[in-house]
Write a protein that binds this DNA or RNA. Structure first.
Length: 501
RNA sequence: GGCGCCGUCGCCAAGUGGUAAGGCAGAGGUCUGCAAAACCUCCAUCCGGCGGUUCGAAUCCGCCCGGCGCCUCCA
């Protein structure tokens, strides 16, 4: 079994064969940092996270680049309104993006190049295209890419260029720029006073201006993989489906025209959209949900990850309260198992143990699922089946083998969908009452103090149970539940205290 | 108008020619002073509709119905 991925370029699932294994160069289109990234953005980044983790788990040596678009129309507009530079505008959003990324347990890329830090390579790229005659200066001073000079144009999006309905999206007007051909795209935009006002203009041999949107990805990718590996072709390029056209189409055009290579990236992977209650997120509908909103609502990252991974990355995903609740409960169950499994003592390797077959099934099914174009829903199903069987064996007090632990850990490492409890404490059957003054009605904020508080109450309850004062015991249970604690009694009178907050 | 996707259990969602994974919810049970957790059993003879191809179709083809995306700067 080997990894196969759906390649937008060929519209087929292809065996994954990197250009120079075990190295894999991975370029991901990142956020435009003029606002907080929303859950739709993060769905795409989670798909990339899964790809990254699975490539590494499969033994590849991945070099992962994710760009940050820190200069574009919206950023310039916002900076102008706030009378600040684009750099000052963007900084807090970059910080926020990294915070959100960490919150969602997304493995950081190796580099996060910012467009404004790569203006020199961009200028070289534009100059190269001018020299080759595929780019031209418009009368407005901007530089455009002439798609008529690049026969392969349209290969990725499979759009017949003659059929493009100009302005069909309603987002632009055809006469917005001074172009030879309506489908030509801008490489370098001549500087306007608004750009100068927010420090979004650079000198170039072909005129002062700023980069067009598509330019940065080509320039940064070529620069970074060129420096590091002396190559001009990426193994994988990722993004959301909306980037297929025109963004990625244009990247290919300008990159390949510049390098003379047939490919800019060997594999193009695109993640589908996440919608909210049936419709696309947009400012117009006022239905933008950010990662911070999830955090504020107390949604555990594992729950959100599970929700995302329970749908294949090439299928649209509808975010609803019910779906989120269901995923959170699933993540909780996986987390409870993970905690339990972590603390279970292990036997020596034993091929005759019932764990042996379980471990093998999990490892095989998990790998087969992800190798099949990152079929995460199937991989998740394998995890759940393992958890059910494993819980049964643990219930029967059959200790797991090292192989079982290894298999589960690998799954947990790639998916990270198990929501472990904040904290747990053991309450002995013989627990003694604490000093009544130490009990306290107020639940402390500090996590350790919280657990201490709940433990003392649990001890109080244990003594109440011993004296068969069940009314008091139940009262304490209710009070602990309200504070976010779950108490699991055992037959022997001991109990486990779980912090669910 | 062009390119493309989807419609599978109450909800979510795999499966894309060989006779329906998984999750959540629900019902019953084991355990239990109670309550959880965990486990066991049950929960789609059927995959939007109608035709067709085939020994065999949720899976292929056609038509219809319904939902959605992209078509120049949105992940």
């Amino acid at each position: 079994m080997a990894l196969a991925l759906y390649n937008t370029l060929t519209r087929r699932i292809e065996p994954f064969q990197p250009l120079a294994p075990p190295r894999v160069t991975l370029y991901s289109c990142g956020p435009t940092v003029y606002n907080f990234a929303h859950v739709g953005n993060f769905r795409t980044f989670l798909f990339v996270d899964l790809l990254r983790r699975w490539l590494e788990a499969s033994g590849y040596d991945v070099f992962h680049i994710m760009n940050l678009t820190d200069v574009d129309d919206k950023i310039i507009k916002a900076a102008g309104e706030r009378r600040t530079s684009i750099d000052d505008l963007v900084k807090p959003f970059i910080d926020a993006f990294f915070e959100d990324r960490d919150y969602l347990r997304i493995v950081p890329a190796h580099v996060y190049p910012r467009a404004t830090e790569f203006v020199e390579p961009m200028i070289r790229l534009v100059q190269g295209l001018l020299d080759k005659g595929v780019a031209y200066r418009g009368e407005d001073g901007s530089v455009y890419f002439g798609i008529a000079r690049f026969p392969a144009y349209g290969r990725l999006s499979q759009l017949d260029t003659r059929e493009l309905k100009i302005g069909a999206s309603g987002r632009t007007s055809a006469d917005e720029y001074d172009k030879d051909n309506a489908q030509d795209f801008v490489l370098w935009k001549a500087a306007r006073p608004e750009d100068e006002a927010v420090s979004a203009a650079w000198d170039a041999p072909f005129g002062r201006g700023r980069p067009g949107w598509h330019l940065e990805c080509s320039a940064m990718a070529l620069e970074l993989i060129g420096q590091r590996y002396q190559t001009q072709v990426l193994d994988i390029h990722t993004g959301g489906v909306d980037l297929i056209f025109p963004h990625h189409e244009d990247e290919i055009a300008q990159s390949c025209a510049f390098t003379g290579q047939d490919l800019f990236a060997k594999y193009w992977l695109h993640g589908e959209f996440l919608n909210i209650r049936g419709s696309k997120m947009s400012k117009r509908f006022g239905n933008i949900t950010t990662a911070r909103d999830l955090k504020a609502d107390g949604v555990e990252p594992a729950g959100f990850r599970l929700l995302v991974f329970q749908t294949h990355y090439r299928q649209q995903l509808d975010l609803t309260d019910e779906a989120l609740t269901a995923a959170r409960e699933g993540a909780r169950r996986l987390g409870d198992f993970a905690d339990r499994f972590d603390t279970a003592s292990v036997t020596k390797p034993d091929p005759t143990s019932p764990w042996a077959g379980l471990a093998a099934t999990l490892a095989n099914e998990f790998a087969a699922a992800l190798d099949d174009d990152l079929n995460a829903p199937r991989a998740v199903a394998a995890a759940f089946e393992f958890v059910r069987e494993a819980n049964r064996l643990l219930d029967e007090r059959i200790a797991p083998t090292p192989a079982a632990k290894t298999a589960w850990d690998a799954v947990d490492r790639v998916l990270a969908v198990a929501h472990r409890a904040q904290a747990r404490a053991e309450i002995a059957a013989s627990a003694l009452d604490a000093d009544p003054a130490a009990l306290g009605d107020q639940v402390p904020e500090d996590p350790a103090a919280r657990l201490g508080w709940a433990s003392r109450w649990s001890a109080r309850r244990a003594t109440a149970k011993r004296s068969r004062d069940f009314a008091l015991a139940d009262q304490i249970r209710v009070r602990l539940k309200e504070a976010g604690f779950e108490l699991r009694d055992r037959r022997d009178g001991s109990a486990e205290l779980v912090d669910r907050r």
